[in-house]
C-alpha cells in the first residue's frame, strides 16, 4: 500500500509535467489509471486518470482541426470555453457530453464565453 501511495504522488506530477509529445504522456497516465484500479479505495483516482487521458486525446484532435496549439494543458472547462469562443459550438457540445458536464456548469461556461466575444445575440437566443 505504501508503494501505491508513492505512486499516487509520483505518477501524477510526472504525467502532468510530461513533454508536449502525446504518446508517452498518455501512456503514463493510462499506466497510473491501471495501478489505481488495482485497489478498491482508489476508484476516484483511476476515474480521474481515465478522464485525463481522454481529455488529452480530444484536445489533440481539436488542435489538429483548428490548427491552433491552445488546447493541451487546459482544463475541461477551459476547453469548452475556447470552443465556444472560436464559434465551434458542436465541438463544445461534444466535449460536454463526453465528460458529462452538468447543466449548471455548462450554463456558466456558455454565458462567460459568449460574453467574452460580445456575442449577445447567441446569448439572447439561449
Amino acid at each position: 500500500l505504501l508503494l501505491k501511495e508513492s505512486w499516487k504522488l509520483g505518477v501524477n506530477p510526472l504525467a502532468s509535467k510530461g513533454s508536449p509529445l502525446h504518446g508517452p504522456r498518455i501512456r503514463v497516465i493510462e499506466k497510473a489509471r491501471d495501478l489505481f484500479r488495482e485497489t478498491r479505495e482508489h476508484t476516484f483516482e483511476s476515474k480521474a486518470a481515465d478522464e485525463h487521458q481522454k481529455l488529452l486525446r480530444v484536445q489533440h484532435g481539436l488542435e489538429v482541426s483548428t490548427k491552433q496549439a491552445i488546447f493541451v494543458d487546459s482544463s475541461i472547462s477551459d476547453t469548452i470555453r475556447t470552443c465556444i469562443v472560436l464559434g465551434k459550438h458542436q465541438d463544445a457540445m461534444k466535449v460536454r457530453t463526453e465528460f458529462k458536464v452538468s447543466e449548471k456548469r455548462w450554463y456558466w461556461l456558455k454565458v462567460f464565453a459568449l460574453a467574452t466575444i460580445n456575442d449577445w445575440e447567441t446569448l439572447e437566443r439561449f
Binding site: L9, A48, R105
Partner: peptide, 21 residues
C-alpha cells in the same frame, strides 16, 4: 466529496490531483 473533487479537476485541470491528495 467525490463530486466536488471531480468538478475541481474539470474546471482547473487534472494537474491539481496531487494538490487534492
Amino acid at each position: 466529496f467525490d463530486y466536488l473533487r471531480r468538478e475541481l479537476l474539470h474546471s482547473y485541470g487534472f494537474e491539481h490531483m496531487p494538490t487534492l491528495y
